[in-house]
């Protein structure tokens, strides 16, 4: 059995790259892989080494705005295909994470600037004595 790796390439909502542009870029890499354009970006499939090159290339296409994770099912597998059954729960998860990729990009930009982890913020919960005072103030 030939080893395969299937990847999702997900474009952050903050990016100006379209799935179509991403797919054309991937085709232009001219590597022996399968490429499928999707609503969130693209899926690619091939041998693991090639796929890692493709993922690096895609990430570099729009700095800190293209993300990737593996996918268990091969491209077009009917067991997981939306067109056959409707979406599986993992799709909703992907959709939710896609929504917040812009924030992750901000974090990656911080890393690029060499920033370090800020001091942990203090607990915002109101101390019980202060709460007692507030209740008194409000109710009197």
């Amino acid at each position: 059995m030939i080893e395969r790796e299937t990847r999702l390439l997900v474009i952050s909502p903050t990016s100006d790259i379209t799935p179509d542009q991403l797919t054309r870029f991937l085709h232009a890499m001219d590597l022996p892989i399968t490429i499928k354009e999707t609503c969130y970006g693209a899926m690619v499939e091939g041998d693991p080494d090639t796929i890692h090159r493709v993922v690096d290339g895609a990430r570099a296409l729009d700095h800190n705005k293209i993300f990737s994770k593996r996918r268990g099912y091969p491209i077009g597998d009917t067991r997981r295909c939306r067109a056959h059954h409707g979406s599986r729960p993992g799709f909703t998860q992907l959709e939710a994470e896609w929504h917040d990729l812009g924030r992750i990009e901000l974090g990656l930009d911080c890393c690029d600037r060499g920033e370090s982890v800020p001091e942990p913020t203090v607990d915002h919960r109101v101390p019980i004595n202060r709460l007692r005072e507030i209740i008194k103030e409000v109710t009197e």
Binding site: R4, S68, G72, L108
Partner: peptide
């Protein structure tokens, strides 16, 4: 199965262990 964590671990040079690779073994 997190996209964000998978991506960050890989981006920062380590190997993420994710459900997806197990699912691949199972479906293959």
């Amino acid at each position: 199965n997190s996209l964000i964590l998978f991506d960050l671990v890989e981006r920062f040079g380590h190997e993420p262990l994710s459900t997806m690779q197990l699912i691949q073994e199972m479906v293959d």
